[in-house]
């Protein structure tokens, strides 16, 4: 392949992402008839398509900061982290950083963290899904074998730590009503299930230590030791019941 078309396409990319750069646009416009009118169409189209895609992933952030700030953040995201793949549904991991850099005023403190939270929720169903085990299956395991029990995360799971208070947008809690606020530094496990929808399980410090150890080693005994080290009254059975009920655990071996 020769370089002429490659150079032209590189010039297009630079000009469309940075239309305020006179040098970039001048370079791009060589050999194009009536470039000004057509250029505006493409600049607007690239921005609108990106904005529409991110609006699907970040509805709450958009509602919180308003259209003008949202558009400004979209443009910052597009210019600093342009899409690299053809599926825009998976574009936007850096949007929270763009929000942090561009949004000011009352909502600034929470907006970028809300965006991080929305990104986790949005992308969760796209992760590979491992089949989950049930509590009934766990109950079949003879007591003497529980020390050898190994577990792993299942379903579509993602850990999330809320650095600021945010409300659980677009989600519900199996053990806490339709929605509840997540408090400062509260840790939770987000689980997406085809049938049950998205569940959010707030995890206390001991629960979080237990879950982290399961993700690391898979060993029930080691995980329980980690939980008990933080809370002497750590309630393993309660935690297992919660996690199995939302399809977050898989029995690996026993």
């Amino acid at each position: 392949m020769t370089t002429g078309l490659r150079q032209l396409q590189a010039a297009w990319a630079t000009a469309l992402l940075h239309p305020d750069s006179a040098t970039a646009v001048e370079h791009w416009a060589a050999g194009i008839r009536t470039p000004a009118a057509g250029f505006a169409v493409y600049v607007n189209s690239v921005r609108a398509n990106t904005r529409n895609a991110l609006a699907i992933s970040y509805p709450a952030t958009r509602a919180l900061i308003g259209e003008r700030a949202f558009a400004k953040a979209v443009l910052a995201c597009l210019q600093t982290h342009p899409p690299t793949a053809g599926d825009l549904a998976e574009y936007g991991a850096a949007f929270a950083d763009a929000v942090a850099a561009t949004v000011f005023g009352e909502s600034r403190e929470v907006a970028h963290e809300l965006a991080r939270y929305e990104w986790v929720l949005d992308q969760l169903p796209r992760r590979p899904r491992k089949p989950a085990s049930t509590l009934a299956e766990a109950a079949q395991i003879p007591a003497e074998n529980w020390q050898r029990l190994r577990l792993s995360a299942a379903g579509h799971c993602a850990e999330f730590i809320s650095p600021v208070p945010v409300r659980a947008w677009r989600a519900y809690l199996l053990d806490g009503g339709a929605s509840r606020p997540l408090h400062h530094d509260e840790r939770c496990l987000i689980v997406a299930d085809e049938d049950a929808g998205v569940s959010i399980l707030p995890l206390g410090a001991a629960d979080w230590a237990w879950w982290s150890e399961i993700c690391r080693s898979g060993e029930l005994t080691a995980a329980t030791t980690a939980g008990l080290a933080l809370e002497s009254d750590f309630k393993l059975l309660t935690l297992l019941e919660r996690l199995f009920s939302v399809g977050a655990l898989r029995i690996v071996e026993w």
């Binding site: 078309l5 490659r6 469309l16 992402l17 493409y42 690239v46 895609a53 690299t84």
Partner: peptide, 18 residues
């Protein structure tokens, strides 16, 4: 797509032999 950037639009090609 150019230089590992994907521009979300259908961009026109110069109709040349290249």
């Amino acid at each position: 797509r150019a230089e590992n950037i994907t521009l979300p639009d259908l961009l026109p090609l110069p109709l040349t032999r290249e």
